[in-house]
């Protein structure tokens, strides 16, 4: 298990190569979640609180999109951003921007679907009280978003977990360029295929630690919410 020892050393000594990969991964995934939240939270709220023809179908599709295969998203974004694609003029293929877009597309349905469910459940619970207290529509939305805030933060963390752990989309649109678009997951795939197991294992440890920390945060947020707000 000398590979394990080397991997631990890389992590322990904060190897610059490893650190730059970790930082890029966090930057890409965090940015993707912010983008996805900007689109997904309002979309989830609108679907939860409005009635329109085709709403049920929209919910089914949104739920189905939670399981989007990353490689398919990667391929679609690749086609959009490639030189001959409709957005080829942006010139961002094989850059972190492309990776952020791909991950945002992957994560957005997760955030929208979970937010829709959270807000709708709370709406069902509160709607009689809103009517009895004569609460106006804007205040209703503000109240629902505020009272669901702990669950919504958990939703965002779930999206972050999905983004941080995926490899298929970023490897296609990022190209796994060392020092530029190489993330933890793409580096693990590459280093494993090259037989450089210490770095792959080191990155794997960091990735697992991040996922654990994200889940611990989600748990902590929920528990804090329950303690403070019931």
């Amino acid at each position: 298990m000398s590979g394990d020892a080397s991997a631990l050393e890389l992590v322990w000594n904060a190897d610059p190569r490893l650190i730059s990969i970790v930082l890029l991964s966090l930057f890409v995934s965090f940015s993707a979640v912010v983008l996805a939240a900007l689109a997904g939270l309002p979309l989830g709220a609108v679907i939860a609180l409005t009635r329109f023809p085709g709403r049920e179908a929209a919910i089914v599709i949104l739920n189905a999109l939670m399981g989007l295969p990353p490689v398919v998203v990667g391929l679609a974004v690749y086609l959009l951003l490639s030189r001959s694609g409709p957005l080829g003029s942006w010139g961002i293929l094989f850059t972190p921007k492309a990776m952020i877009i791909a991950q945002a597309i992957l994560v957005m349905p997760i955030i929208a679907a979970l937010a829709r469910q959270t807000i709708e459940d709370l709406w069902m619970e509160y709607r009689d009280e809103f009517a009895a207290m004569n609460v106006g529509p804007l205040r209703r939305i503000a109240t629902l978003l505020w009272d669901a805030r702990f669950s919504l933060v958990t939703t965002l963390l779930a999206g972050f977990g999905r983004a941080a752990a995926e490899v298929g989309a970023v490897i296609i649109v990022g190209g796994n360029i060392e020092g530029f678009t190489r993330t933890m997951t793409t580096a693990i795939a590459l280093e494993t295929s090259k037989g450089d197991l210490p770095l792959a294992l080191g990155l794997g440890m960091v990735l697992i630690a991040i996922v654990v920390v994200v889940n611990a945060l989600a748990w902590g947020v929920r528990r804090t919410g329950e303690r403070l707000a019931g």
Binding site: D128, E129, A132, G225, L228, A229, G230
Partner: peptide, 14 residues
């Protein structure tokens, strides 16, 4: 006018 429902919903607040 005010009403209290049989199972009133408590807002997630104090």
């Amino acid at each position: 006018r005010a009403i209290v429902f049989q199972r009133p919903a408590m807002l997630r607040r104090t």
